[in-house]
């Protein structure tokens, strides 16, 4: 076994043309994701988290810099992404959506795969809605369905963009547990974007904090807690609170900087830093 990182990001920059002007979303991003690591990323909105994740998911190319991902097994797809926006196909039933990932990645193995998809649907509380179309589901159910679609593929690299943001607390807690279980069972590498610092510390081996736009990696903090972790008992420990507070301070600086930049842009030459995730 090599100890080479699963993902290597070196000095990556990404600029977008916004009304004929180059807008720099990411600048000098350097980051390693270790094999089988659970990495969480936090940062002010508009700092380029989604852009970075999309690069890892082969949906965006760096403008410059190096990005390397090792694909180890032909039996498993390299990556599966769970998007921030609604992404289940309206023209497929719940069951078809759930199986889509496995079928499209060419890792479908008949009844065995079907069993796995069914099992995940059950865990996501969607079993009895198999024959429904997405327009008949609530927003939370649709998001759970997109989790199933990605999880069923057991990718080497699981990419999640604020996946639980739209869920209620109970569903969130259940799915967090499920995610950690899957990660341990299938030995995946996980990159998880969240705006909840508690969630980042609860789930991650490490937490990366990004700066406000143009985004860089500001610091990477290791999370020392043993697994399995439970939020309730973690909250009672001083170390947990210290960690969260530290991240919070670090992030607050960036949010304030982002706000100041927005104000400056508003006052001066108008919309150069039109941040805020407008896509």
């Amino acid at each position: 076994m090599t100890t080479e990182p699963k993902v290597i990001v070196r000095d990556v920059e990404r600029t977008f043309d916004v009304r004929r002007r180059a807008f720099r979303a990411l600048e000098g991003v350097t980051l390693d994701v270790q094999r089988n690591e659970f990495l969480c990323i936090v940062g002010p909105s508009g700092c380029g988290k989604s852009t970075l994740l999309r690069m890892l998911g082969n949906l965006e190319k760096p403008s410059s810099g190096l990005l390397q991902i090792h694909h180890e097994s032909a039996q498993r797809p390299l990556s599966a992404m769970i998007f921030q926006e609604e992404s289940v196909f309206p023209w497929m039933t719940v069951a078809q959506n759930a199986a889509y990932g496995v079928k499209i990645t060419g890792t479908w193995r008949g009844p065995e795969s079907q069993r796995r998809v069914d099992e995940l649907l059950e865990k996501a509380g969607l079993s009895r809605f198999r024959d429904f179309y997405p327009h008949q589901l609530s927003g939370g159910m649709k998001q759970r369905l997109s989790l199933v679609r990605a999880w069923a593929t057991s990718p080497e690299l699981l990419l999640l963009d604020e996946p639980f943001a739209a869920l209620d607390e109970q569903n969130k807690a259940l799915l967090q547990q499920e995610l950690v279980k899957l990660w341990e069972e299938y030995r995946s590498t996980v990159v998880f974007i969240t705006h909840s610092l508690e969630e980042a510390v609860l789930l991650g081996d490490r937490v990366a904090v990004m700066t406000s736009a143009p985004g860089r990696i500001k610091e990477v903090v290791s999370v020392p807690f043993e697994r399995p972790r439970a939020l309730a008992s973690l909250r009672r420990s001083g170390e947990f609170n210290q960690l969260v507070t530290g991240l919070w301070e670090s992030l607050r600086e960036e949010v304030e900087r982002a706000r100041a930049a927005e104000l400056r842009a508003l006052a001066g030459r108008v919309p150069e830093t039109a941040s805020g995730g407008a896509r």
Binding site: L59, P77, M81, E85, S87, F89, I104, T105
Partner: peptide, 16 residues
């Protein structure tokens, strides 16, 4: 566009 993103991320072929 996100529907195309889903397909592309999973490595769908052109015909798929």
């Amino acid at each position: 566009p996100i529907y195309f993103d889903v397909a592309k991320n999973l490595g769908a072929s052109r015909w798929q």
